[in-house]
Amino acid sequence: MEGKLIATSSPHIRSNETVTRVMLDVVIALLPATLAGIYYFKFNALKLIVLAIVSAVVSEALMQKLFNKPITINDLSAVVTGLLLAFNIPPTAPWWIPVIGSAFAIIIVKQLFGGLGHNFMNPALAARAMLLASWPVIMTNWVTPGADAVSTATPLGILGGEAAGASMPSLTNLLIGNIGGCIGETSALALLIGAAYLFYRGVINWRIPIPYIATVGIMTMIFGGGFTNMLYHIFAGGLILGAFYMATDYASSPVTSRGQIIFGIGCGLITSIIRLYGGYPEGVSYSILLMNLAAPLLDKYTRPRVFGEVKQNA
């Protein structure tokens, strides 16, 4: 069956949608946040982003050559993985962090499980989890934006009581991204602009991100200390990045509408629980990875009924 086209009975829908087009849209959507990251964290951010992308593309080509598969680096999917991974590392990281991370994402999480569309979890997030477990000190070394980068804590770290005495950044700074954090997660505004573009292009729909963010909002408002803290929980850290760009990954999220809503709520619950009660200040990446694993199950139990089907045991 492999490689053969499976034709089902009509009707068939024709679409101009291709992998390359979807990936290009994602890259365009990520541009504002990329620029914001480079603006705030200067040359080091640029260097890390470039290295992550190059390493992802090279790993992809290498593995496909090794497996005697057609080389498909032109579909831009490796570029997206590399870019998203770079968004997830702190701007102070040494050069080899994005290189190893991207190679891990592409070789182990993506290609060894069969390549594009077969990965059971989001490659960039799996790589981030691997990097965080391997080099926890490097991966949590935050600095303030700007040339004279001083060591700091992330807003969520401060909320979690990690750095006693540090004051919270203002909400405006939070929104435009003038805070400590990973390269791509600091500017909520830039990420939202990109997300709006993706909605407009129809690349993503509301069913995962909106329930996800809403759940985190409700949970943190009730259990996390009121409205202001809720705003911090929503706009600080990787929630916007995770909800719009990571949780919506086609291959590792459910395909049914109801499944996607449950997926979003599940991500929200796990994120809130980790943030409020867990040992880590940030829980977006782990929540999405855990829900990735539940995606096949969600699909199984939320499969829409086929109309006109006769009950088998009637």
Partner: peptide, 15 residues
């Protein structure tokens, strides 16, 4: 050399 701690943690065993 900065060792990858994950390799001596349980996930590293599976990898």
């Amino acid at each position: 050399f900065k060792p990858a701690i994950i390799m001596i943690l349980p996930p590293g065993a599976f990898l």
